[in-house]
């Protein structure tokens, strides 16, 4: 049996305490990190590449869903929460393993065993085959399912190695598709996030963010004017002077909103 390398993530000391206690009695398990918030968790994943995260849902800075969004492809996750009806529904819908606080040792061992089996069947970073639950599902979909109906995320989280950027939605100027990434333009800087433009656009408020082009989603607040350059060619001029191309369907979408 290979050694299972585990990182514990919970902002409450007693909660970490019980995990430490339960894990200490498990053979073949090594606790590689104890994190008190989401940033530390992302850093621990980047630096130590644990096999498994035991992840609290409600934490300062980054919540459990945001951590999953940032590291979901590299590690397996077991969520732990006390009570959160939306999160529980999302876990059930997406068949994510979770622990309800307080949890017993047998229940914990069960979840650990399942995680071990998943990892042996297909480690998260290896492509194809029978992928584990945390890689099979889209973290964004899970996070969306865990939000109360009709609400949208108020920020975008982006990982840059061990660093995490948190960008409030209203500070986003526009988003640009770049192969498998999106470039998030905010106040003159660009942050790259591994996500498709369509997937990101789906999480944004369609009344504020418009897909003006195959490769661009624009924050309507930043639009200064539309320029007509010959037939069928239009350009969006932003408040800071930058120019973005507008496709025919993009123009139709803009007209609908303006």
């Amino acid at each position: 049996m290979t050694r299972l390398r585990v990182a514990i993530v919970d902002d409450e000391e007693p909660a970490r305490l019980v995990l430490r206690e339960y894990l200490a009695e498990e053979p073949g398990v090594e606790i590689v990190a104890e994190c008190a918030n989401g940033f530390e968790a992302v850093k621990a994943v980047a630096d130590l590449a644990p096999d498994l995260l035991i992840l609290d849902v409600q934490m300062p800075k980054l919540d459990g869903f945001e951590v999953l969004e940032l590291v979901g492809r590299e590690t397996s996750v077991i969520f732990a929460t006390a009570f959160d009806e939306f999160a529980l529904r999302a876990f059930d819908v997406h068949a994510v393993d979770y622990l309800l606080k307080p949890f017993s040792k047998p229940r914990f061992q069960e979840a650990l065993e399942r995680a071990r089996e998943r990892l042996q069947a297909a480690p998260p970073s290896s492509p194809g085959a029978d992928a584990p639950a945390s890689a099979r599902l889209s973290p964004a979909e899970l996070a969306a399912a865990a939000r109360p109906a009709g609400t949208r995320p108020s920020r975008i989280v982006i990982r840059d190695g061990a660093d995490v950027h948190v960008v409030p939605i209203d500070r986003v100027d526009y988003v640009e598709a770049q192969d498998d990434y999106v470039g998030i333009h905010t106040g003159g800087t660009v942050l790259l996030k591994e996500q498709t433009l369509a997937a990101l656009a789906a999480t944004l408020d369609p009344r504020r963010f418009v897909r003006i082009h195959r490769s661009f989603v624009l924050n309507l607040d930043r639009l200064a004017k539309l320029e007509n350059r010959g037939k069928e060619t239009r350009t969006a001029v932003l408040r800071d002077g930058r120019q973005l191309p507008v496709s025919r369907t993009g123009y139709a979408r803009l007209q609908e909103l303006l």
């Binding site: 409450e12 007693p14 909660a15 009570f83 309800l100 606080k101 307080p102």
Partner: peptide, 9 residues
């Protein structure tokens, strides 16, 4: 539930 979890811990 969080309190009960703390007690359990």
């Amino acid at each position: 539930f969080n309190c009960l979890h703390s007690i359990s811990a």
